[in-house]
Amino acid sequence: MLNKVLSLSILTFLEGVRDRAIFGIGLFALAMMSVTLVVLGFFMRELDKVAVDINLSAISLAGLLVTFFLSINLMAKDIDKRTIYCVMSKPFSRAQYVWGKYIGILFIISTAFAVLTFCSSLTIVIAKMQYTNWFKAFSWIEYFKAVYASFLMFVVLNAFIIFFSSITSSSFLTLLFSICTYIAGQTIEEVVIYLKSANGQEAQLSEFIQKMIDILQYILPNLSVFDLKVQASHAIHLPLDYLLAITGYAAIYSGILMIAASLMFSRRELP
């Protein structure tokens, strides 16, 4: 069973990494990182924070572009364009198909992250050599923790894409739902803060409602927990517990989404 899932993952990976879009996205991200070196010249202070912020943003943006333009093509368009017939005519169960696609997409995201992290690290090394004084507080460990957290967000976001692809037959709808999920996931923490406050002070909410809000913010995808740009740019130490907690959150959330996607897709017809 694992062999089959792996063979489909490799197929998905090869199809994805050879897509022209990935080269475009890669070049765009590299250009953004190179711009860091130029942009730093315009700043008078906190150059380390600017460099870290631009590089982490470039990685996130490239990840988003890969997710929205490539991942969606790899499953939703598979169904849209009937390429799925070529896979499903082989002895694959629907669940194996869904998992194979997801793991293949994760291979692509991992590769993209590996390349982008290497390039961004190189940019920061150059910046560090140019402006040594400004990078005294900079911490590589915190930087890589932020990259890892960003990767976890894409693990969850791509599970959403697989889930939406398994319930709709239009790649456009999958794209729309995924963008909405991303926006909702990024803003949910602000909504919670808003709900818990009144006129700038803490709102008087019953304990039950407080608890409901706390639970709901994690049941709905809380993608902002994966955004550690501020911590990385200020070299704020993040405890290992936090990393373990968000890793568990991403794994449980993606696992549930994938099980739901497998169940939905097993019932689905492919006319």
């Binding site: 062999n3 063979s7 197929l11 090869l14 199809e15 050879r18 364009k81 390429t83 005519s89």
Partner: peptide
């Protein structure tokens, strides 16, 4: 299928290898 749509970024050999490995 009537109109075979394949993964167009793959080569024929890669596509056929996928088929054979999926079939064990």
């Amino acid at each position: 299928p009537e109109n075979p749509y394949f993964y167009t970024n793959l080569t024929a050999v890669e596509l056929l290898r996928f088929s054979t490995s999926a079939s064990g």
